[in-house]
Design a protein around this nucleic acid. Structure first.
Lengths: 193, 193
DNA sequence: AGTGAAGACTTCACTACTAAAGTTCGAAGC
DNA sequence: GCTTCGAACTTTAGTAGTGAAGTCTTCACT
């Protein structure tokens, strides 16, 4: 790479000195992705902190809003979707109940289960964050034309599908779950309210 | 969005029901990025585990290889680059010394400082991981033409520059550091061995 | 020399997570 | 009807991080 256009290209040039077989075009994409995500996490973290919310709380709020009214999920479902253990969800829900963002109640149909529900305050917090976040995101993509945004989105979704295939292939079959959002219908306390 | 092409498009449609002002093209890009990074982290995590390495150890090895021979850095430098506190680095280095991946020694030129150096075993581990990882990454992008790879890389780097600007703008000026890799030359125990 | 301020790492107290064991409830088989 | 198995959450013990306080060294100045 004769004329690196960014610090990332410089870094990749160094990697190549250490390990010849690297494809620089591939490395560019992969390394840009991880750097980008790290910086965006920092940016979101600051915005959330300004609204008095932690990233952990935000993740849970998103899941609850995403299932739609009446905004209820079982703790185990949230844990699976976020890639956490049930134990971690127990504690997160504890904190969020204390903060007034969600409620925790026994499921009357199966008293082993627990239902986590969004409070009005939690719903309102979600909206506040989304208003700020969407402004930030809009600004992030301000230099991109509509066509470029579509292209970029399409390519990222192709990568997403691809990595999902690679992941499923390496998972012990006992852990396989139905793919994509299919669970939503059967994994929600009140599928059709 | 009449005809969602992926579970991601479905999710965005739900978000729009809850908050009208969202630009779906923007949301597609942003949400794909975060999903992609999460899944790739899982994939890398599995590969590393198979080689007996944690993600934390891998991050440190990368930084050390990246400065080139003689593969030495101060703990504080590594901590800054990884976005960790100095305290966290103290413990990481403890564990990695015990695992034989790095050495820790006092800097003879300034006895407040400590020098973390890569062992031959650490160097070899880095190579092992890179061999596996580059195969995985190559496969990830197998459906992309050379032109598409370049386009994607270019767009991601544009986003990277953009988010960096947005981040710097919201940082207290006392915390501002020189941008990009400029520190490398002055932030390494032996700049010109 | 001697003092004071600043810097670099470590230590301490605390927080959040994981893995595994424990508890309780519901369902299936005898 | 009782028992046993499995599922869902909670509890416990251990690990890795943060922020703040502490220790030692260097540097600038008297």
């Amino acid at each position: 790479m004769a004329d690196p256009r960014s610090s990332l290209d410089e870094q990749i040039a160094i990697y190549q000195r250490e390990h010849r077989d690297l494809d620089p075009q591939v490395e560019r994409v992969v390394n840009a992705l991880s750097r980008l995500d790290r910086r965006m996490s920092v940016a979101y973290g600051r915005q959330l902190a300004a609204l008095g919310l932690s990233s952990a709380e935000w993740e849970v709020l998103k899941e609850l809003v995403m299932v739609g009214s009446p905004y209820q999920l079982w703790p185990g479902t949230i844990a699976r979707r976020l890639g956490l253990t049930p134990a971690a969800m127990t504690h997160r829900v504890d904190r969020m109940v204390a903060a007034g963002l969600v409620t925790r109640e026994r499921d009357t149909e199966n008293r082993v289960r627990v239902i986590v529900g969004l409070t009005d305050e939690g719903r309102e917090k979600w909206l506040e964050v989304m208003r700020e976040a969407s402004a930030f995101e809009e600004e992030l993509l301000q230099d991109f034309t509509v066509k470029e945004r579509t292209q970029l989105g399409d390519m990222l979704i192709r990568l997403l599908d691809r990595v999902s295939v690679q992941l499923d292939r390496s998972i012990p079959s006992s852990q396989l779950r139905s793919k994509h959002g299919q669970l939503a219908e059967v994994d929600t306390p009140h599928p059709h309210p």
